[in-house]
Design a protein around this nucleic acid. Sequence first.
DNA 1: TGCTATTAAGTTAACGTTAACTTATTTTCT
DNA 2: AGAAAATAAGTTAACGTTAACTTAATAGCA
Lengths: 350, 350
Amino acid sequence: MARKKNATLNDIASTIGVAPMTVSRVVNGTGYVSEKTREKVLLAVKEMSYRRNGLARNLKRQKTDTVGLVLGDISNPYSTEIANAVRERLAARGYNLFICISEHSANEDIGAFESLVDHNIDGLIVATRSNQEGDERLRSIADSNLPVVVVGRDFHHSRVDFVSADNLRGGFEATQHLIDLGHRRIAFIGAGFESRSSLKRLQGYLNALEKHGIEIDERLITGRKESVSDVPGYSTEKIGYEGMKRLLSLPSPPTAVFARNDFTAVGAMSAIKDAGLSIPQDIAIVGFDDTPLASHMMPALTTVRQPMRLLGQLAAEMLLKRIAIEDELERDERVLDCELIVRGSSVATS
Amino acid sequence: MARKKNATLNDIASTIGVAPMTVSRVVNGTGYVSEKTREKVLLAVKEMSYRRNGLARNLKRQKTDTVGLVLGDISNPYSTEIANAVRERLAARGYNLFICISEHSANEDIGAFESLVDHNIDGLIVATRSNQEGDERLRSIADSNLPVVVVGRDFHHSRVDFVSADNLRGGFEATQHLIDLGHRRIAFIGAGFESRSSLKRLQGYLNALEKHGIEIDERLITGRKESVSDVPGYSTEKIGYEGMKRLLSLPSPPTAVFARNDFTAVGAMSAIKDAGLSIPQDIAIVGFDDTPLASHMMPALTTVRQPMRLLGQLAAEMLLKRIAIEDELERDERVLDCELIVRGSSVATS
DNA sequence: TGCTATTAAGTTAACGTTAACTTATTTTCT
DNA sequence: AGAAAATAAGTTAACGTTAACTTAATAGCA
């Protein structure tokens, strides 16, 4: 038996002998309908298990009450917290949220954009890492006047709002903290030196070193250039582990490490322990994000906390504002403070 | 300036003096179009930055090439791995994936179902925890002949396929492992005794105890009944911590703990350490899911690995099959093996 | 040369809904 | 009682697309 076709407004209307519009009124609770008719309609709706066709409805209404969110790394609590916060704020205002993942490539970014725009979402929030083709596509979407907000990444467009944590300052403070503890050979794990302009945390690290007159040693900046698409999930742990191994094999290894995020830090911690060294006595370590696991590590991980919920909330609000106000709007740009959370992995060891 | 309206096929067609259908043909690359016309159309499309209206298109085509995935706890790598696997498989077959989160309530489950169905998705994958109202709604969706697959949870419907890890067996083996190590007072953290029918892991635990003639002590089964909606993210860590505290305050505390998942286990580990006890000497512990952090704990956490990617892949394939074959299909049901990963948190301490 | 096949369009209608308007009936109020 | 207001519908057209069909011109071929 082939898939049975769903009943339409017309089907309902013709079986009970009213106009489709009347059924529409009942279903949507708008306009005038007599109690008698309403009941008749409701009965038929139930009987024929009618369900309105959202496509047709949205086509006619010219809006979908739906917002799209494109996430990069979905395995990261950073993303998921933002997603949750966004969803909550949107739900409170009657909007649905569709999430698309774009884990690996610019292609997938574009695919996600396309599929969301194809569904005529009312607005788009983007929290992926920046890349050229994706940005181009995004620019043309913004040009078409769809409300867009980007979170935690660079993107410049006069009609696109922007909200991010202050990664530059966060990276600076994390490094400064290690310097304050007396460290001079401080490594960075999670990206190569060439990422310094796009990765603010790395730039913050460099700034801190420079400020204190510590020479930058590129051998202490280690990441992985090749694609890591073969490693699903928290791939940054592996990068942290391998990066740390590499650092430990240097003629003069670092005494402290700033990792681009907590997962990288956790991987690095494992490598340090595997090498028979102890934290923070031999090597101090600082992460980024304050994921819940940071506080459960042994020793607990010093890290930089981002206000993820706030990021999500603000992003949602900026977008809702853009959706509500159809006029040209000033680009809104918010950079939120991070907070250094000092724990056992980086205490003074006189 | 109000939002400018997007150009339509008609706009393009009338400005260059062809029929809308011709433009449609060019845009979709179907049918016969002369090279000259094609170029003219393509130029206008670019000039007027035309973008097809997916709503209208899908309404006409009666399909969207889109699948919906409803996730419960998005903060859990279990969910995110499944999501990734599903997305990959679907993408390979030209389908888009829209993810909806339903973190807290039956209401949100239903909201997610509705918003996806409203967009006329071609199929639905559900990976939330079961609840009555949500299941009712899901049943009626399945009744309407929309292809549906559920992952990792109970749901019975003749047209709904099912794929899950063998949580019962996993729970059994985890507990059996602790028994084999000589433990007799084994606690379960993460749910109350009353969840035994819906939580297979707990049932597996109970079965193992029973098999070995160990009396079930309900005081050793601890969870949290109240809503945890105030705790975003990995809330189960908190449950683990608090549950463990409660267990340690018992007159005769357990010597081993089976936690419903790794996050709960990590929380419990912290509580054990905070109490000045050591793992596994004083208390052995086993988690579930083999999240990446499990291997990085100190000691590394023994846990039960679920084949998450496989779960996602199978779910996607089952759904695609249902979408492709419109005829009545036998309910497909797959239960996949888990694997016990023994690590430092549960070794023999003769 | 005539006949079929191919190419290149155009035309019509429908996907399922709702905004906007119209008509008819009932109620309310002075 | 009569006019204005409120209620209860129905009608029309459009949202933007494409499937299915038609028409017309050109190409291919025996």
